[in-house]
């Protein structure tokens, strides 16, 4: 029963969504199923929040490694939850009450988001530049023909993204325009890359179709906690 009902739900909902593509009157059924999904997706936030609380509280109580960071997580979680739920300092509260936009300019929620989350996220992303620089120096070497092709392509794309690339081949006459860095870069992106990407996309799509059919028909059960029971 524990497995039969989820398999039945998957079969019915999956079947409706697939068949609705071929039976136009069923489109309304598909929309209903997708709206149910949106409602269920909201509950995932409760689950996520509960899970975050449980894991971090356990970490603090049992004083596991780096438990101090868990306190920061919990404090941040509760502060943002309170600011968002009670719309603290939200200028739209006067007119709209609790219907006020969570992200209204000047609200405490938005201010804390801008002052903490925004710079932290941007900093984490910016660190990539340092790791890319280090990796370029240590790993990007023409050790064999494959590595050389990769190296040359990366070099052209990088040059093509900058004004330096445009200037470096700007002297070329019109009949050689294909060899201008910006055109070579575009050719690599729009032709060589395109062919590879399309092949990958078609492969992935076929894989998704086969996997979806296995899930809908109940053949694939690993998502129901273990497939060999």
């Amino acid at each position: 029963m524990k497995r039969t009902i989820p398999i039945l739900i998957t079969f019915i909902t999956g079947g409706i969504i697939v068949l609705a593509e071929f039976i136009p009157p069923w489109a309304i059924l598909r929309e209903h199923v997708l709206i149910y999904f949106q409602i269920i997706a909201v509950f995932a936030f409760f689950l996520g929040g509960g899970s975050l609380l449980k894991i971090n509280c356990q970490k603090v109580v049992r004083k596991r490694e780096d438990w101090q960071f868990a306190i920061v997580t919990l404090v941040g979680f509760f502060i943002m939850l309170a600011l968002g739920l009670f719309k603290m300092g939200n200028p739209e509260m006067v007119d709209l009450g609790f219907a006020a936009d969570l992200n209204a300019s000047g609200s405490w929620f938005k201010n804390v988001f801008d002052a903490v989350k925004a710079p932290l996220s941007a900093s984490m992303y910016s660190l990539l530049a340092f790791f890319i620089a280090s990796a370029s120096y240590r790993a990007f070497r023409a050790k064999n023909s494959d590595a050389t092709v990769l190296l040359v392509s990366a070099f052209i794309i990088l040059l093509g993204q900058t004004f330096v690339g445009v200037v470096s081949t700007g002297w070329m006459p019109e009949w050689m325009s294909f060899f201008k860095v910006e055109n070579l870069s575009l050719w690599l992106l729009a032709k060589a890359n395109l062919a590879g990407q399309r092949a990958i996309l078609i492969g992935i799509a076929l894989g998704i179709i086969s996997m979806s059919l296995r899930v809908i028909l109940g053949i694939e059960r690993t998502h129901l906690s273990g497939g060999d029971e």
């Binding site: 890319i132 620089a133 370029s136 120096y137 990007f140 190296l151 990366a154 070099f155 990088l158 040059l159 993204q161 900058t162 330096v164």
Partner: peptide, 8 residues
């Protein structure tokens, strides 16, 4: 980008 290319 120029710095990266020169590093390479």
């Amino acid at each position: 980008h120029v710095f990266l290319m020169l590093l390479i």
